[in-house]
Design a protein around this nucleic acid. Sequence first.
DNA 1: CTGAAAGCGCTTACAG
DNA 2: CTGAAAGCGCTTACAG
Lengths: 333, 333
Amino acid sequence: MKKVTISDVAKHANVSKSTVSQFTNGRYHYMNIETKKRIKKSIDELGYQGNFIARSLRVKRTSTIGVIIANVLHFSSPSVIRAIEDVCNKHNIHVIVCNADENPHKEKKYINMLQAKQLDGLIVFPTGANVDLYKSMVVDNYPIVFMDRLINELSVDAFLLDNEMASHLAVSYLVKQKHQKIGIITPPLDRKISPRIERIQGYKKALHDHGINVRKNYIGNVEIDEVEQEIYRMTHLNDPPTAIYLINDLILMEALNYIKKNNINMPEELEIISVDDVPFADIYNPALTTIRQPWFKMGKDAAHLLLKKTHDSNKLQVKREVYRYKPELIARR
Amino acid sequence: MKKVTISDVAKHANVSKSTVSQFTNGRYHYMNIETKKRIKKSIDELGYQGNFIARSLRVKRTSTIGVIIANVLHFSSPSVIRAIEDVCNKHNIHVIVCNADENPHKEKKYINMLQAKQLDGLIVFPTGANVDLYKSMVVDNYPIVFMDRLINELSVDAFLLDNEMASHLAVSYLVKQKHQKIGIITPPLDRKISPRIERIQGYKKALHDHGINVRKNYIGNVEIDEVEQEIYRMTHLNDPPTAIYLINDLILMEALNYIKKNNINMPEELEIISVDDVPFADIYNPALTTIRQPWFKMGKDAAHLLLKKTHDSNKLQVKREVYRYKPELIARR
DNA sequence: CTGAAAGCGCTTACAG
DNA sequence: CTGAAAGCGCTTACAG
């Protein structure tokens, strides 16, 4: 597996490495047609393939960006990744995807790894920790963009759902279905992950707008493996909620599991609604009402902005921009 | 965003680049303790982070492998990827995942890209085309391993399901449920994608073993967007099948869609079984019986073998190994 | 229109 | 125990 290098091509075509390089980089407007032909022929005959690593070292640009997903288990991951890849492909930029698994240590490891690999920029769904690490990246003016989550101390552009509106859609839908006793389940709030906080706030605000009192009992902030027992707790209150708002798809899965195992009649005995559409929402029995995030659009926009940043990385970021996207209610019954 | 290099560290610590390099590579058994301390201090003070690209160029090893998935829409993708990443992480190897989208052109583009990036090896779910490209990789003794699919002309190790057994499990299960009229739906067979072919063969063989005649009418090989009309066709035959074997999860999704839209009673009016477990099989109403592939194990094994190959890439492959994995029936009713 | 030279940031024999 | 030198495979001013 001996590799053919630019020197081999140069020798074979009887020109200098410089000339071959000009050719492979498409700068041959002024090149003798014979030279061009000879180089082309040599490349084909030798099966020459450029060494991207060597090129990157020289030009100080890897034409590669990284994306760090907080948790790939979300059903939305493929769409976001796909959207990012689509725009990057068009610009001949490669994408490396990493899964932080909601684990700040993993997140940090990946960031260090990606920086060591000299990636041109990063799109990240931050776990919420590693603030100092991000801060130093901001100071270095390293191109970076957040998705889904906001970190207040950091001046990093972010692409997010209008979470308050999402909660408003959810609560209003349930109220319209004659529900007044509405619970909510979110993952833990300790790491101050913005969508969780904002969705809870939105939920409280929406209840208020509908003249419904917030009941502490109806609010659950629990780990994913405690969701079932949390639903058990809520549904076994003296005056239990008749509907529960689940703030993401993973919680939805747990809820469906509980509902099924306990033969709960949905929606008669318990109604649910969740943020993030799932691929089986349509075919489920009964069909699931969800609130869709425009992930594909968000991914595209984030990628575009990041690519722009990688090109004018000299320009210092003046102020953080936060792009909010409208959620969409998909009422399926 | 001026980068700190090894030279900066050397200057700052008053040693040579060689010595810094020895230090960062952990070869400092013989190093003066003072020198070690000075270097450590300089690295910390300057915030030095090695340039992986430069290192890769020098050592001719990127410590990175690629995986090309034929179609990430399969629900199994996360597990396989996760398994591969787990073993690679343990060996400090990075992973780049690409999605060929069942598109041979994309597949080719990605392979070229990954080779240009000097990846140490590839795990691929081949689309079935690009045989010549793979052939040249085999000739070059480039480390590569196939998953899920086999290409007969190519001497590439492969990790696959025992597809015949999967079909046997499916058919036997249905027969045990008193079905004698059993259909099958697969994607198109033109590209000779081995699991499709083998599952059909296994289906025929299993029917035969149960003394049931194969009926041409009961076999559908169609594109994913034609699955619904194919089910329509089969269920509207004079003597329609009472059960259908769906050979993958994407076909299952379409089938469920059809069944739901047409208010078909499952399993009374039509029973189904499918290969590849889906995340909602348990919570679906009614629960879905599936045939599980040990994707996690397959991914781990494939990664281990590939890493091994990247280390003795001088050893010429003598003969292709095909590793077959046992499917597992998950009867959920 | 083409080539010689320098250099990107590392590592690795080798010398001392 | 430490350093000078060569070189990985490219690209890019610059000279001619």
